[in-house]
Design a binder for these strands. Structure first.
Lengths: 158, 158
DNA sequence: GTTGAATAAAAATTCAAA
DNA sequence: TTTGAATTTTTATTCAAC
């Protein structure tokens, strides 16, 4: 039997329940699966604890310690590996040149892009990279030492 | 009674058990607390499931779906959390205002700072945040829906 | 403040069914 | 493939002890 769809949203019951669960969980503190069953019921969804247990697993919801000190369900902060890969991808578009001087790296990019690359690098916290200073088309990367600079240079190039 | 300390590490039994738990959990797939009790025993620690349950809460370990499709305990990825924190820290310096309109957030910052905040937000990939558009002192955050916008707003404010 | 034993509570799974 | 009822399994907490 095909999954039941209704409306024109093209969503199965399960899909829209999943969506609602994420909504509920991000809006109020749900401490147990029974509580979630309740909340779903209020929202017009019928589901049992068993179903909700499966939903939670599929949605990869996690139990975190809430403000009250008790457990609550939460949507994990997306773990998408943005590592350096995302930055490299961005760099391929705007890269101009990269030079090293002792523990410093000077990255030249297309005008107006230095700040965003710098901010991304700051956010990712690259090992050995102490910080960045951005101009308009130039980004200065201050590394711990020469070895770190070489390593950072390497990881930006590859 | 004071917590028992041994050796010169200045660590309580609980502290070193916590440390060992993190080690174990990051090395092999621990699916249940009983399994963790076992592993601890092999490592020379005596603890019951009750204690381990409390430890897990204190260490904020989470249950994630492992490669096998079964649950396993894990240390939450700190990088993303850390980064969001970093953004918040940066925000405290440059924040002006934050307003929401449906699924949109309008973040006002000190002139010249919108781009870097936007780039950082893009880098950490906040759940429900589709993207950002930056002017000079204004950053538009486009969220999936109103709920997501509320959630993002919340995480920026706290 | 920390712990274990016992217990309560909650969550995952099994099994049958649709 | 999805689900609920029942069940098992797992986990959180209580309560007493230290």
């Amino acid at each position: 039997m095909l999954p039941v769809r209704h409306g024109c949203g093209g969503k199965t019951v399960k899909e829209s329940r999943h969506h609602k669960i994420k909504e509920i969980v991000s809006q109020r503190e749900i401490e147990t699966q029974e509580e979630l069953v309740q909340a779903l019921q209020e929202a017009g969804f019928t589901a049992t604890q068993a179903t909700v247990s499966r939903d939670i697993k599929e949605l990869q919801l996690i139990k975190v310690v809430g403000s009250s000190g008790r457990y609550k369900y939460a949507i994990p902060v997306t773990t998408t590996t943005f590592s350096l890969d995302g930055i490299r991808r961005k760099l391929t578009d705007v890269f101009v040149s990269l030079a090293r001087a002792q523990n410093l790296l000077v990255l030249k990019v297309l005008p107006g892009n230095a700040h965003s690359i710098g901010a991304m690098l700051d956010a990712v916290e690259v090992e050995g990279l102490l910080g960045t200073i951005a101009g308009d088309d130039t980004l200065l990367l201050i590394c711990q030492d020469e070895a770190a600079a070489r390593s950072v240079e390497q990881s930006l190039r590859e």
